[in-house]
Nucleic acid binder design. Structure first.
Lengths: 222, 222
DNA sequence: CAATGAATAATTTGATCATATTCTGGCTCT
DNA sequence: AGAGCCAGAATATGATCAAATTATTCATTG
């Protein structure tokens, strides 16, 4: 068991992760078409792995299959956004509560370090870094909650609003981005699960309502 | 435009649906291995469509990828079951509440008819029919709620406990299966959304706790 | 005569399959 | 029991066929 020269992941897994990140961090715009042949070219892989990655992302709601045989990045409706808000408003606090009951001091340090990085990204106006770090912060929280099924559900929601989030943040700049993480980390330190859950709930609401407002604005101007 | 000889669905979609039903209604036992070549033989399709169907089901949590290149039907742990109970206890009542606000009289008749069929299946001890009708009843409710994302989440949970549910019901017989549907239908008729939500919550708890108890028993005897 | 529209041709893209290659797991032999 | 070999299954590629969208042409009309 060297652990060093371990086999690399299969191609379809790599393609999946690349495409997933592109959706999650808004490299693909909402409504944009995704073609198999386009990806075989741009990612330099055969069609079988690409097909599998696309099917997976469709199943997760990250991509949309359009009746005919076209695939695209979903364009959210106002109702969709409301649903996402409702779902996250329940899932995220629930997971934060569980995480507070289970978190170790090492993990708290880890989360704190991530939040420092996050602040740095906001300060530098680095949108991509903000999106990535913010996601990883929440994702780490899901893991600590030790509820793999609920974590899967919460994780899947990010894929659905990722593209829209990028658009919204691109318009508003990185200054007034939500970050209630400090409240939450303090609550976790104090082992006050209820307060941690409340803090996360506010973080979620603040971020998601921004998406909703931005959507309503763009709907009005169009 | 005859509309008669419309094009049949693509093979990968057909394979997906067949496999999905097999998982959902317990034709595949928990822990059972699922091989690509086995399916190409038994379903008479090429490997590409089979691969795509399997990836999709893995993404939905209906199948499990086991590190190496093996795939199997997931074996639930006690913690997994607790998570599923928590998730359904929130999702199903929420969707029932929305459905009550939107349901038409025709749809109520439709649900009532399904429940009659369900009673018939229970009376005849037809387990497969019970599982299928019970699923379709809840699924129809999800559709009526007009919340596609939340419905997707709820729908995905069925795939996770489908195999275990079959095992449990097989052990207990069809007599004391949960069916709080009559309470719920009455509440929907009266447009009492809160009561409908409570009824569904009891239905869910009753069914899922049975799974949990059965799991604990089998864990104790093993 | 210019412009619009339908019908058809051409190109692009998706779906499926057959085949080659690689890796895992079991079995045997020492 | 441990190392190496063998069988079988999964991964990945490219070719082939089918479908859909786009481009083009021609006829008809104002």
């Amino acid at each position: 068991m060297s652990g060093a020269g371990e086999n690399q992941l299969p191609t379809h897994e790599l393609i999946y992760r690349q495409l997933r990140d592109q959706v999650l961090f808004g490299d693909l715009a909402p409504g944009q078409a995704v073609t198999i042949q386009g990806l075989t070219d741009s990612l330099g892989a055969g069609m079988t792995p690409v097909r599998e990655a696309i099917r997976r992302l469709i199943a997760e709601g990250a991509l949309e299959f359009q009746g005919n045989r076209r695939v695209c990045v979903p364009l959210l409706s106002a109702d969709n956004i409301s649903e996402l808000i409702v779902a996250r408003q329940w899932l995220d606090p629930h997971l934060a509560l569980r995480a507070t009951e289970r978190v170790t001091l090492d993990e708290l340090d880890e989360l704190t370090a991530m939040d420092v990085e996050l602040d740095k990204a906001i300060g530098q106006g680095d949108l991509r870094a903000y999106l990535e770090l913010n996601y990883r912060f929440h994702k780490r929280l899901y893991e600590i909650a030790e509820a793999p099924i609920l974590a899967d559900l919460a994780d899947g929601l990010w894929l659905r609003f990722g593209p829209s989030l990028r658009v919204v943040c691109g318009r508003m700049g990185t200054q007034n981005l939500p970050d209630k993480h400090k409240d939450m980390l303090a609550a976790m330190h104090a082992r006050d699960a209820e307060r941690a859950a409340r803090a996360i709930r506010e973080d979620v609401i603040q971020g998601m309502e921004q998406v909703r407002r931005s959507f309503e604005l763009s709907a009005a101007t169009n």
